[in-house]
Amino acid sequence: MAMRARKIITGEELVVQAVRTQKAKLVVVAGDASANTMKKVTDKCQYYQVPCYMLATRYELGHAIGKDARVSIAITDSKLAESIQHLLTPNS
């Protein structure tokens, strides 16, 4: 649903750009992303204080949003990001 509502941005460069412009509310990176990609995205998220989670594989991440393999996605809707973060954070 979020993909159809255009509340998700995919692709390394577009995700990094969304973090820089403060559009990204939450970022998810595939656990099998390259070390360079992982560092680039997590460093940007840390600098701009955007929550970042490492989950699943690129294929599982892509399947979750109805696309082919995706290494990183950014959620741009604050309510959706809050709900996902609540589900991903233990003891909340």
Rank of each mutant, 00 (worst) to 15 (best):
K67F: 07
R58G: 15
T42R: 13
C52W: 00
R20Y: 14
D77Y: 09
T10Y: 10
D32Y: 07
A2W: 08
A69R: 12
V19E: 04
L80K: 03
T42G: 01
I65Q: 07
R20M: 11
A5H: 12
R6L: 07
R70V: 14
A33P: 01
M1D: 06
I75M: 09
L14N: 15
V50R: 04
S83H: 12
K25I: 04
A56M: 12
G66L: 05
M1V: 10
I9Q: 04
V29Y: 02
G31M: 05
T76W: 05
V16S: 06
I75Q: 05
Q17T: 12
A18F: 08
P90H: 10
R58L: 01
A24V: 03
L88G: 07
I84A: 11
I73V: 13
A81T: 10
A33C: 12
A64M: 09
K67G: 00
M38Y: 10
D77E: 12
K39G: 00
K39M: 03
P90D: 09
V16E: 06
D43T: 14
A69C: 02
T10P: 00
P51H: 09
G31P: 02
A74M: 02
K79W: 08
L61P: 02
V15E: 04
V19I: 15
M1E: 09
A35E: 14
T21K: 14
D77A: 09
T57P: 01
V29P: 01
A24E: 02
A69E: 09
A18D: 07
D43Q: 14
S72W: 01
P90K: 12
V29D: 02
M54P: 00
S92F: 05
A2E: 08
I73G: 06
Q49R: 15
L55H: 08
K79S: 11
G62M: 03
N36Q: 13
T21A: 11
V41K: 05
Y53G: 01
Q49C: 08
H63G: 05
A33F: 02
K67S: 12
D68S: 14
R4K: 13
I65F: 10
L61G: 03
K23M: 10
V27H: 04
T42F: 01
C52S: 08
Q49P: 00
T89E: 11
Y59N: 11
D32R: 07
Q85A: 11
A5P: 00
I9E: 04
R20K: 15
R4E: 10
Y53N: 03
E60L: 12
L87S: 14
T76S: 12
D68I: 10
T89A: 10
P90M: 06
L55I: 12
I73K: 05
L61D: 02
T76Y: 08
G62Y: 08
Y53M: 01
R4I: 00
R70S: 08
M3E: 11
A5D: 14
E13Y: 10
T10M: 09
I65L: 11
V28I: 15
R6K: 15
M54T: 13
S34H: 03
D68R: 14
N36T: 13
V16K: 11
L88C: 06
L14M: 12
C45I: 06
Y48V: 04
R6E: 12
P51C: 07
N36P: 00
K7T: 10
R58K: 15
A81Y: 06
Q46D: 02
Q85I: 06
H86T: 13
A24R: 06
G31F: 05
Q22A: 15
D68N: 13
T76M: 10
R4Y: 04
